[in-house]
Design a binder for these strands. Sequence first.
DNA 1: TTCATTTAGTTCACGTTGTAGACTAAATAT
DNA 2: ATATTTAGTCTACAACGTGAACTAAATGAA
Lengths: 387, 387
Amino acid sequence: MTQAVRHEEMRARNLEVVLGAVGRGGPLTRAALAEVTGLTKSTVSKLVGDLVDAGLLAETGPARAGERGRPGVAVVLSGARVAALGLEINVDYLAVRVLDLTGGVRFAARRERDNRGSRPKKVLGELQTLATEALAEAHRLGLEVAGAVLAVSGPVGDGVLFSAPNLGWQDVRPADLLRLPVPVELDNEANLAALGELWYGAGERDFLYVSGEIGIGAGLVVGGTLFSGATGLAGELGHVVVAPEGAPCSCGGTGCLETYAGQEALLTAGKAASVPELLAALERGDGPALAACAAAGRALGIALTSAVNLLDLDRIVLGGVFTQLYPWLSGPVSEVLTARLGGLRGTPPVLTASRLGGDAATLGAAGRVVHRVLADPAPFVTRAQEA
Amino acid sequence: MTQAVRHEEMRARNLEVVLGAVGRGGPLTRAALAEVTGLTKSTVSKLVGDLVDAGLLAETGPARAGERGRPGVAVVLSGARVAALGLEINVDYLAVRVLDLTGGVRFAARRERDNRGSRPKKVLGELQTLATEALAEAHRLGLEVAGAVLAVSGPVGDGVLFSAPNLGWQDVRPADLLRLPVPVELDNEANLAALGELWYGAGERDFLYVSGEIGIGAGLVVGGTLFSGATGLAGELGHVVVAPEGAPCSCGGTGCLETYAGQEALLTAGKAASVPELLAALERGDGPALAACAAAGRALGIALTSAVNLLDLDRIVLGGVFTQLYPWLSGPVSEVLTARLGGLRGTPPVLTASRLGGDAATLGAAGRVVHRVLADPAPFVTRAQEA
DNA sequence: TTCATTTAGTTCACGTTGTAGACTAAATAT
DNA sequence: ATATTTAGTCTACAACGTGAACTAAATGAA
C-alpha cells in the first residue's frame, strides 16, 4: 500500500530526488538540477544547501568556463560523511570492504582461509575481527557507517542462511554470532554480486548475473532493481532442469544444471582436483578439461535458454568461477543460445564475463547500504535553521 | 528516477491512498480511514469529500449501529462514474467487457467465430463493432470509459503484436485498425489473465498464471504486481526446455514444453481433432487421451520446476485450456513438482485451476484501466471550491 | 426523561513546504 | 565601459496537511 504523504515526506522525497540526480548525473549545478528535477531554483537551492550541510553533497570548483553568463557551482556526492560495510564469507576467503557514498573504496581486506567444514562460530568470529578492523578504520577517517550487509552463498530468508552447500552449514543466523556496533543484514551472494555489477561494474540496467561457485546461483536485475521473487529465493539457476533423465542431484531431482556445470561436476569431468588445476589444464589444452567445459557450457546454455524465455533477458553476465572459465565457456553457451533463441527473439542475449570478479559481492553488499542512504537521505539531513 | 513532489503530487498521492484503502478495506468511515492511512481526520474528510464529488466514492448508509458514539458514515468505491473496456481476440471468439470501478460487470459480449487464418483487418473490424456496442451501453449508463486494453495471445511490445501463433498473424499493430473514441492499449493474454486472477479471482498476491492455448504463455505476479521483464516479453513458458534432445519446435529449438503440452501436441497424442473431443475422450477414459495428458502434465511439471527455481513461486494457477484439463493434468504436474522441489523448498508450490476460466483476460484487460484510475484518481477529481 | 459519555465529522488558525518572480552576482561579448 | 547572459538568493505567496476546538449523533446511567 502506498504511504500517505505529509510535508515531511514531500521534503524527504525531494531530497532523494536531488541527491539521486547528482548521483546519476555526475557534477551538476543548482540550475541544472532545477532543470532535470522539475523543481524550482529556489527549492533546489534550499535542498542542496541542506545536503551540503549534511555532508552528503560537496561543492566543486566553478563549473563550465568560457561560456557566457555567471558560471555555476557544481555539486557532487560527498564521500566525507557516510560509509557502508560490505562483508563476504566464501569457501576460501573472508572479505570486508568499506565504501563511501561516492562508491570510493576506503578500506578493503581479505583473509584467505579454507572455510569448508569450519563451524559457523569460528568463521564468524574471524569475520568479526576483520569487520571491527574495518569499522575502526572508517572511524579514523571520520566516516559514519550506516550499516553492514553480509554476503553468503546459499538461500537466505529473514536473516537465516538456510543452507550453504559450499560450507556445509545449515540454518545459521549469522547476526547472532556477529556482534558489531552497526546493524548487519544477510543476503545471497548472487543477488549482491548482481547489484555490485549494476552499481559499480557494467552498469547495465537489465541483466542476469550467474554466480558459478560450488552451486550455481543467479541474481536478476530488471530496470535497475533486483528481482528476488515472492520470498527472496529467486535465482536458483543451479536446479533448472537441463535433462529430465539426467544424473541425480543433491536436491532430490535429476538432471539439474548443477550436475553438469557445478564445480564438483566440472572438476570430476575435467580430471582436476581444484579450479586452478582445471585452469592450468585448459591452458595446456587438455582433452578432458576442454570437454568438461564444453559440456558444462552447453548445459548452461540450455538452462539459460529457459531463463531467457521466462525472464526476458537481453544480457547475461557470467561471474564467480565462470569468470575465469569464460574463454572456454562462452563459445558453447552462445552457440546454444543462438540456436534456441534466434527464432523467437531477434537477437540472442549478449554474454559477458563479470567485470568485478571476486569483488562483486562485497561491493554489492556495501552498495546496498549506500543506495539505501541515497534512496532516503532525510535521516542524515537536519532542517536548515532560519536566521 | 523518482519524481519530484509538489503540493499537487502530495494531494494526488493522498487521494490515491484514501481511494486505495477503501478499495482494499471495503466500506470504511472517515474516522477509520484516518486510522489506517495515518492522515488526520480533517485531511481525510477533505479528500473523501472531493472523491465523493468526483463520483469515485459513494456514501453508504450509517455504519455500525448498537455501539456507543455517533455512528460513522462509511464510504465505498462508486461504480457510478468511471468504467473500463476490456477486449480480447481468441482463436475461436471475440470478447468485450465493461467494468466499473468496483469491479462490477456492466456489459459483456462474446462472438463465437473461428479467427484462425482470418485477416487482421477483418477480425479487428468485427471487434470494433462489438467494442462500439459496449461503449454505447456504457454511455447509456452514464459511465465515462477511461480506456481500453486489448488482450491477444502472443508476444507484444510497444503496441505491436509480434506474432500470434494461434491466428497466423505477424507484426500487427491493432491500434491502427481499431478506431475507437478511447485510447486502446495492447497486452499479452497471459499477463492480462494473470492480472484478472489477481484482482477478480483467487486474489493471491504471488503466483504464476499458466495460459494453455495453442502456445503456452505465463504471467507472473509478485507482491501484487505483474513482472514482465526488461522488454515485456517475460513468461514464455512454452519454450522452456524440457528435453534438450526432444522433438523440434516451431521456435527453432528442440524439446520445448510446447512440443509436449501445446494444443497441437496434446491433440495429436490424444488422437482428438479438437479440445472438446479430447475432453470427451478423457471422460470416457480413452487410453491415448489419458496418456497424452499424463505426458503433457509431466512435461509441464518439469518446465514449472525450472520456473519455480528461477522465480521463487509458491502458487501456480493453470488457465486457458488447462483449466478444463485440470483434473487430468494436476496429478502428474504435482508429482513432478513434489519429487523435484521437495528437497530444496519445504513445500512444493500449490497448484490450482483458474477460477475465472475464459473470462480472465477481459477482466484483467479492463481491470488494468480500472487500477490505473485507482492508482491515480487525481485527474478525475476537481479541487473543492472554497465557500 | 435527562444528562454524561463516547465516537464521528467539520471548522479554522497555523505550520511546513514548494512557487514565482524580482533581485543580486559573475561571467562573456560588443 | 556597457549590454547580455546565466547562476543563485530572497521574499511574498499559495497549497496542503495538522491539531485542537467545536458540532453532531448515538448509547447508557440516573
